[in-house]
Design a protein around this nucleic acid. Structure first.
Length: 775
DNA sequence: GGTTATGGATTTTTT
DNA sequence: ATCCATAACC
């Protein structure tokens, strides 16, 4: 069985145990995806199981895509016959095919959170409920929770008591009714209704059970009750269920994820095999030790401990800053010093924080230090308002019954259909029990409205009708472009002078591009399929220059990623653990897991910082160091109070089992430089792919080479070449350029360089690593 | 119908 | 501090 020879003994057992219930505890950096892909490849290649009989469920589209790609690399094209997708996409598919059996029309639209929110508000006002007393957010939360627990409207009334739930119940009822009226399902419905379908229609369930002989679930620790039921129903017939997860990395409890589910897998599935992947290929021994010391305080976790053959590594470095600005400056300096010493590249660093608001100080400091960075996460593409507008047009055209979308665009851009005018149409819709869209056509003839209003209504209705006709015969991309133009959205943004609106206009263009991409790549390039894609994907891959930029993100976003050097910031009581979590034992444990997740992202070096004073909501507060810091074993931690940022034995660490990283102390010509950058990229990919035992073992050789090279680097930093105005130079990232101005000498010299392609940049000689261009 | 003032809240976000 | 939603304005 040569296929599995690349796996370690536990991974191998996990891959080979394909029949019956299996629980795989996959610790951080233990080669989980690798094991899963090999497992599936093995099932197909060695046991002749048809890929179409295997269902692999993930939480993200990215994870599903990655899984397919990597299996394809092992078994070729037939990997694409595998059923791999997110819970939501699988459920949407099932409901479109078989939902009619429980009264779901196949062309339903999927409402995202913003759509849900506006429906809730509508339901509140229908019930005459003061949205100040009962916030839509909280009501929505209650309803969403109920759905995750598979609690329908009637059961909600029976089981939840109290004044708030009384209100929530009334809203829930109207909300569900409105969804039906709009032929819409929200995210939570996708799961709840699929379970309902399975339970009410045994023949439908049997069909899917027959199709999915083998069921795999990734990130099982993040599963909620509805998802649990879904999996349970599908797998109960054949009992070939394999779940993978790590209870220590459960950080989405606040969204309904239930860690208890993974912990009771053995009771759910008597006779289940439990396999632990505990060998870590990512981090140094000291980093793992620290991670363990933090996580072991949690009660009720499955017993396990990661170990590694990697280098012991350097001590963790902790820094106490005076305030958040100083904290950020220290971090910026730390990054510059590592890069200047040739010990790291910008892309090796991640700054992880608890809340998005904390990114600001670090962005400022990095900007001042001319350090390239990317903020990961934040507002997603399909959630930007201008994109939501254009999507609302598409949805209205596709499904005129979708009143949430219709309301959004009826006066966007403004076309003279104000509140009063719309109210007339709504009254007609209500009186005649017809969709709002049809009522608009009638209101256009309503004598009680001014002529201008009536004309506006008629023009809007005509516009949508015209666009619908276009949608029927034009290719998707051309049609989308037409909507962008004829709706007036693009025109309005173009007329604005603000740079912000120019960016929004660009986003609209980008949206058209994404439609083209979909048209080219999908086997069903229809409007309906495109809308489904958007609803379930929620983001497009923006080409970010992560290779050469420091990554900034929340700890939550960092889950599943790894970085050579991780800097966790804001380790203060009230921030991390967050004050909202501090009163509750259960939530505190989740914060602790979040801390564990952060620590285990680090491959070579880990920095932890906190500020003595921090300004939050415009108020400066005194902070205490986080309790998580005191969990760290003292002998593994070096405290820094002032300027020095580098670890004592920097090189031993930077060059340990993670390969060559130093660019070198000698001059290199452009072609060599380019080939190095390329090979490093490849190396980086291979590393991220997965560390096999072999890699870890061979890595230690690089270790010894390291100490010899270190002195060279420092000497180089001290004796930088001099540059004259007009001289041609080469930069690691920006490529070839010409020196425009110089100021000062030596490492402090400041140069302005015009790069071909990358534009004019101001650089500090010390950090820029400029080379004279040869020839 | 669009623009500015005011009050209130402000963790994390795979779909 | 800052963002957001609603209310009171022009």
């Amino acid at each position: 069985m040569a296929l599995l020879d690349d796996l370690n003994p536990q991974q191998r057992i996990a891959a080979e145990t394909i029949d019956g219930p299996v629980l795989i505890f996959a610790g951080a950096g233990s080669g989980k995806t690798r094991t899963l892909t090999y497992r599936i490849a093995y099932m197909v290649q060695e046991h002749g199981i048809a890929p179409e009989n295997i269902l692999a469920v993930t939480f993200t589209n990215k994870a599903a895509g990655e899984l397919k790609e990597r299996i394809e690399a092992l078994i070729g094209e037939k990997a694409y016959r595998l059923w791999a997708g997110t819970f939501h996409s699988m459920c949407a598919r099932i409901l479109r095919t078989d939902g009619a059996a429980i009264g779901i029309e196949p062309n339903f639209v999927i409402y995202d959170e913003a759509d849900q929110r506006s429906l809730i508000k509508e339901a509140l006002s229908i019930n005459d409920i003061d949205s100040k007393q009962y916030s839509p957010v909280e009501i929505h939360y209650a309803i969403s929770n109920a759905k995750n627990e598979l609690v329908g409207v009637d059961q909600f009334r029976r089981t939840r008591k109290g004044p708030f739930d009384e209100i929530a119940h009334r809203v829930y009822r109207v909300y569900q009714q409105r969804l039906r009226d709009n032929n819409a399902l929200d995210f939570d419905d996708l799961l709840m209704r699929t379970v309902e379908l399975f339970e009410k229609r045994p023949e439908v369930l049997a069909k899917y059970q027959q199709r999915f002989l083998y069921v795999l679930v990734d990130e099982y620790q993040d599963i909620n009750h509805a998802q649990y039921r879904f999996v349970q129903l599908l797998a109960q017939k054949h009992r070939n269920i394999c779940v993978v997860g790590d209870d220590d990395q459960s950080i989405y409890g606040w969204r309904g994820a239930n860690v208890g589910i993974i912990l009771s897998f053995e009771q759910d599935w008597p006779g289940a095999k439990v396999i632990r992947l505990e060998q870590n290929y990512r981090s140094t021994q000291k980093i793992l030790e620290c991670a363990y010391e933090v996580i072991r305080h949690n009660k009720g976790r499955a017993d396990k401990k990661l170990w590694t053959q990697n280098h012991p590594g350097d001590n963790i470095i902790c820094y106490e800053a005076v305030n958040e600005e100083e904290e950020a400056e220290w971090v910026a300096r730390l990054i510059r010093e590592h890069v200047a010493a040739g010990a790291a590249r910008y892309g090796d660093f991640a700054i992880l924080y608890r809340t998005n608001a904390m990114s600001r100080a670090f962005e400022d400091a990095l900007m001042n230090a001319h350090i390239p960075y990317e903020v990961v996460g934040g507002v997603r593409f399909y959630e930007r308002s201008e994109i939501k507008d254009i999507i609302a047009y598409l949805r209205t055209i596709h499904n005129p019954g979708d009143s949430v979308s219709l309301r959004r665009i009826v006066n966007t851009p403004t076309r003279g259909i104000g509140e009063r005018t719309l109210a007339v149409a709504e009254r007609i819709a209500h009186r005649k029990s017809i969709p709002l869209y049809d009522a608009i056509a009638l209101a256009a003839d309503d004598e009680s409205l001014r002529r201008a209003s009536r004309q506006a209504l008629a023009a809007f209705h005509d516009l949508i009708e015209a666009l619908r006709r276009e949608s029927e015969h034009r290719p998707l991309m051309e049609f989308v472009r037409s909507v962008v133009e004829r709706s007036g959205l693009l025109e309005k943004l173009r007329q604005s002078a603000s740079a912000e609106d120019a960016g929004r206009a660009e986003n609209l263009e980008e949206f058209v591009t994404s439609a083209r991409r979909f048209q080219e790549q999908s086997d069903d390039p229809s409007l309906g399929a495109f809308l489904e894609h958007i609803a379930l994907i929620s983001d497009i891959d923006e080409a970010q220059d992560l290779e050469n930029s420091v990554s900034l993100m929340t700890l939550h976003s960092a889950k599943g990623l790894e970085f050579p050097i991780v800097i966790m910031v804001g380790l203060e009581e009230g921030i991390f653990p967050h004050e909202r979590s501090m009163g509750d034992e259960f939530e505190l444990e989740e914060e602790r897991r979040l801390c564990y997740v952060g620590i285990t992202r680090a491959q070579r070096l880990l920095y932890l910082t906190y500020a003595h004073r921090r300004t939050i909501y415009g108020e400066t507060r005194r902070m205490q160091p986080s309790r998580f810091l005191s969990d760290l074993p003292a002998e593994l931690v070096d405290w820094r109070t002032e300027l020095s940022t580098m670890p004592q034995r920097l090189l031993a660490v930077t060059e340990d089992s993670f390969g060559q990283r130093v660019i070198g102390g000698r001059r290199i010509d452009l072609t060599e430089l380019l080939s190095r950058v390329k090979s490093r990229k490849r190396a980086g990919k291979a590393e991220a792919e997965n560390a096999t035992p072999q890699v870890a073992a061979s890595g230690r050789r690089a270790d010894r080479r390291a100490s010899g090279r270190r002195t060279e680097d420092l000497e180089q930093a001290a004796s930088l070449p001099r540059f004259a105005v007009g001289e041609r130079v080469v930069h690691d990232k920006f490529g070839e350029g010409v020196v425009v101005t110089t100021q000062g000498e030596g490492p402090d010299a400041e140069l302005t360089v015009a790069f071909r392609g990358a534009g004019v940049k101001r650089l500090l000689a010390r950090y820029a690593k400029l080379e004279k261009a040869s020839g």
